[in-house]
Each structure stands twice: as C-alpha cells, then as structure tokens.
Design a protein around this nucleic acid. Structure first.
Lengths: 200, 200
DNA sequence: GTCTATATAGCGATAGAC
DNA sequence: GTCTATCGCTATATAGAC
C-alpha cells in the first residue's frame, strides 16, 4: 500500500525531472501531480534530493534489466552497446529519462551517499565495461580509445541535447532521430570508406 | 568607463555560468565577484537573464572571431570544423564556456528576443553550415548525414559532459581529453579499417 | 499517513539617500 | 552610478491536529 503510493511518487518525479530538470522541478508540483499534500510527500522521502535519487534508482533498475536482457541474448558485445544506447535515447525522447545537473553539489553529495544508487551504477558500468573491452578485442570498437572514454560517451547519450533539438525542428520522427544520433555516436561525423561506396 | 565596468561584470558572469550554471548562479555572487553592490549591477543589466544573455553574446563574439580566422586560413572545411570544435572543448575545460539550460523557459524567452544574440548565432551557424556541406561534397564528412545533425552535434561539444568527467578522473591532461573527445565526435566509437592497421 | 497552516530562508528586484 | 536597506515572492521543509 505504502509501496504503491511511493511508486506513484517516483513516477511523477521521473516525469518532471525529464521535463524540467532538477532545479526547475518543485516539490509542490510533485505533490500536485501525485494528488497528495506536500507534507505527506515528506513522510515518504526526506528531501527533494531523495526524490531525485529514487527516480535515478528506478531508471537504473530499468537499465539493468535492459542490460541483463542483452546479456541473455546472442548479440555481439558491439550490438549490445548499441542496443543500450538506443534504449537510453528512446527513454530520453519519450520524456522518461530523468536528467540531473552534474553541477548541483547538494544533489551530488546525496547521490554519493546513496548505496543502492552507487551499487546500480557500478553494476551497469561493469557490464558495459566488459562489453567494451570485448568489442575492442573483436575489432568492432576502436581499440585505441580508452574504455572509460567509450563508457562515458555512451552514458552521455542519456542527456544528449541533440535529440531534443532535432525533435523540435520537426523534420524527423523519433525512430529516425535515434538512428541518426546512434550513427554519429558509433560511426562519427567523418566519412568512412563504406560511405563513399554508398554515396556512389 | 561604464564599458569597462560592464566588461568586468560579463567576465564574472561568464565564469560563474561555466562553473555553476544559470540556475545555481546568484546575482549576489556576481556582484560580490565584481566587487560592487547588487543594486549597481541592476543599473547595467535589467535582469539575471540579461546578464546571461550578455555572457552568451560575448562567447559568441569570440566564436565568430575563431570562425573568421579559420575562414581566412588555408584549412579545408573539415579541418575548420575540427578547429572550431577543438576551441569549444578547450573553452569548456578551462571553465570559460557559459552553459545555459535549454529547459529554462524564462531564459529562453529572453534570448529569443535578444537581437544581437540571434544575429551572432545565425552568423556562426551559416559559416559552419557552409563548411559542412562543402566537407560532405569533398567526402570528408559523411554525405548521408543531414547537415543540421552535423551542426547540432558540433554545437553540443560546447556542453558535452564527457570532458569534465574525464578530467575529474584525473588520468588525462586537457590536451589529451580534447583530442580523445574530438576523435569520438568525428571518428566515432566503432573501429575503422585504418584502426585495424594501426592496431596491428 | 494525511491534511492545513506556517516557519524559515534565499533570491530577484527595487526604493531612496548621496 | 554607487551604496544600504528592504520588499515581495517562492520554495524547501516542518508543526501539529485528526
């Protein structure tokens, strides 16, 4: 019962974080969206930062599910990385990816003490990191790039501003935007030899 | 005299925007950094949004200078694009690139009415857009990518979170970080045929 | 646990003297 | 134009009744 209510709260927080971000989201809005009083909210979560942390935990749990589904598939490490990046881009375009400002120190402090958050980040990172080194060994990911750089670059797709800008331009639908951004992320802006063949 | 004072204000705003972002920057901090009273600040700029707009105009003027320097050089369109992206990454890493939240509506509304800001954005975009189509015609930039996608992807390097994360990891210096991020932006994460040769 | 009502504080912006 | 002092508002968080 209490769990159901808290789920509703987290879903509302998630939506508002995706829509306006942490700084512009107000606790009053969250309470209004859930349909309860603000004081009741604070019976479930100690602070605004705790609300954001709970939303991040939720999306990381979803991410871990996606990761484990890929792990159980027959896809190659490179294909798995693309699949996770594709999922993150879809989440972002459908306003379901909460984005937190990396600059807000009070929020960072709370997240760094949130054990479940840290544990989930570590679990996801370990799976992705494993895929990255394997994909590099197979020659699918550039073996000269530091694995951390590859990992952060994929993580950054979750808060990439390009999809939203492309969407507001209105010339592409969500599927097309995701594929374009994936193409620039993994393929780069520069032409490849295969591009020359395709263009010819 | 008034111009000198306003320059000092804009420089302070620029630094604070780069450090904490618009929402966490307070007008009191700006006044303290400049060394004047807050009320005096408001004699020069009508609002906090106007302060941010002035900082954006300043950095866009610098960007336009970089663009025109490249235009006057003998570099190829592709090399010019790389050079501008490199400049933006250096500005970001040295805490001189003001980053504005795309979600803040009051700020967006003010910027969309700021003629000089819009004019500068347009000028820079026209130069970059010209280079992009030329680089595509020369086969240096993937001709299958929409030019707008390429433009936004390059603009996004100015607020890419990856450089700061790599820097905080502490394993690379600024020069190396810039080159790694440029490599992923233009070359992509996936291996190229030339990578296979280099790795062998 | 839920509510109404309120405490507390920070911030953007202004008044008014000099 | 600069200052001190303050207004007015909003937002986080809490008190206390039910």
């Amino acid at each position: 019962m209490m769990r159901v209510r808290e789920d509703a709260i987290i879903i509302a927080v998630n939506r508002l974080l995706a829509e306006k971000g942490f700084d512009l989201m107000t606790v009053d809005e969250v309470a209004a969206e859930v349909g309860i009083a603000k004081a009741s909210l604070y019976k479930h979560f100690a602070s605004k930062e705790a609300l954001a942390a709970a939303a991040m935990v939720r999306v990381l749990e979803q991410a871990l599910t996606v990761v484990k589904d890929e792990e159980a598939s027959s896809a190659s490490p490179m294909e798995r990385l693309r699949a996770v990046a594709r999922w993150a881009l879809h989440m972002q375009l459908s306003q379901q990816m909460p984005t937190l400002p990396s600059q807000n120190s009070s929020l960072r402090a709370e997240l760094m003490q949130h054990h479940r958050y840290l544990d989930l980040i570590m679990q996801v990172s370990e799976h992705l990191g494993d895929w990255i080194v394997k994909a590099q060994a197979m020659g699918h990911i550039d073996p000269q790039l530091p694995p951390d750089l590859v990992l952060y670059t994929i993580y950054a797709r979750a808060c990439d501003p390009v999809p939203a800008v492309l969407k507001s331009a209105g010339r592409f639908n969500d599927e097309q935007i995701v594929e374009w951004v994936l193409a620039t992320c993994f393929g780069g802006l520069a032409a490849r030899s295969s591009d020359a063949r395709a263009a010819a």
